[in-house]
Write a protein that binds this DNA or RNA. Structure first.
Length: 332
DNA sequence: ACACGTAGAGAACTGGT
DNA sequence: ACCAGCACTCTACGTGT
């Protein structure tokens, strides 16, 4: 067994792919006889004593295949695995139409049988309360994400977070909707497309139906902080430098690279003087660009940058002054 | 037209009870 | 769980160049 593993590893390292050479070198642990690899069921079998040395070896080949000679038309053998479904999308689905693979209608006897199969299939898919909980929650996340126009990436992230909450037993004593909403909120922030709690709350189904929207937002807020703490997650503040190119791309300056470099210097000095913490990264980026244009004698208005960065001129004013002050402290 | 400053309100976070 | 306090950002407005 170990010899096979070592061998496989060695092959991976050398990039060797020929299975024939691999088979020739392997020996049976029991009798020392030659091993044969059966491609059809993935077993390594001793040709002398018949011992199955290793079974269910992983097929690392491509999961697509093409049905004609050209390799262009590759066909998947199924949808990719997704965290947004409680069974990761791996379960069997029985169609609702009472027709066979040829499109013919089923006999009444068959219809009754398929109906029973559907029922049991559904029961097995959500066999315990945890599964049902997960199914419900992921459905809610999907619904809210689509209502808010959030990307699939956010949905996926929220689903993973919810799974972790379930694993760590953080749901107990909290509503499924509350935790699902908190996960979506966290995911939207993690994926750099943040939505405020007040945006998310109206599309969630937390609390009573009387439209009491005021008290429970703080509940989601608390749940959010709770799961962040328990899962040891830190929503890291985005690096202001990430916004520089985006903001600069539509602004007319003589030398963009020069402005960007200066802006980066200003940000670095601001970080050194610790005037950056707690401030929104976009406003820091916008302010650093404005500061850079001033230092380089380029004529760009606050209004122009404000428009591109989606930050008000007031904020740019407040930020760039203290950033330039920090810049002067460090540089001179 | 632009830069700058101020006031008041709102959102997010933190810490105390 | 609740609340008060805090820093930040926003809108709206007035003033000076």
């Amino acid at each position: 067994m170990t010899s096979i593993r070592k061998q496989t590893k060695a092959n991976e390292e050398t990039g060797e792919k020929d299975t024939a050479t691999r088979d020739a070198r392997q020996e049976c642990d029991e009798c020392g006889g030659d091993l044969k690899h059966d491609e059809s069921d993935g077993e390594y079998v001793c040709t002398d004593c018949g011992l199955v040395v290793e079974e269910e070896t992983i097929d690392r080949g491509p999961e697509w295949r093409s049905f004609n000679d050209s390799q262009d038309e590759k066909s998947r053998v199924g949808a990719p695995v997704t965290n947004t479904m409680h069974d990761k999308g791996l379960s069997t689905q029985i169609g609702w139409q009472n027709k066979d693979s040829h499109g013919n209608r089923l006999s009444s006897k068959k219809r009754a049988q398929v109906q029973r199969l559907r029922k049991w299939n559904k029961r097995f898919q959500t066999k315990d309360s945890k599964e049902r909980n997960l199914k419900h929650a992921l459905g809610e996340i999907k619904r809210m994400a689509s209502a808010l126009g959030l990307s699939e990436q956010v949905e996926e992230t929220a689903s993973v977070l919810y799974r972790r909450c379930l694993d760590e037993d953080l749901i107990r004593g909290r509503s499924v909707e509350g935790v699902a909403t908190a996960c979506l909120y966290a995911a939207s922030r993690q994926c750099n497309t943040p939505r405020s709690l007040d945006e998310i709350y109206p599309v969630s189904r937390i609390g009573d139906a009387s439209g009491n929207t005021h008290q429970s937002t703080s509940g989601v807020d608390r749940t959010y902080r709770y799961i962040m703490r328990e899962l040891n997650l830190k929503i890291k503040p985005t690096d202001p430098r990430d916004f520089l190119n985006r903001i600069l791309s539509d602004i007319d300056v003589d030398d963009k690279q020069k402005v960007r470099k200066k802006a980066e210097e200003i940000i670095a000095d601001a970080e050194e003087e610790n005037v950056h913490s707690g401030k929104s990264p976009v406003s820091l980026a916008a302010a650093s660009i404005y500061g850079a244009t001033l230092l380089l004698n380029q004529k760009v208005t606050q209004k122009r940058i404000s428009k591109e960065a989606d930050v008000t001129t007031v904020t740019i004013r407040n930020r760039y002054q203290e950033m330039l002050q920090a810049y002067e402290e460090v540089e001179f």
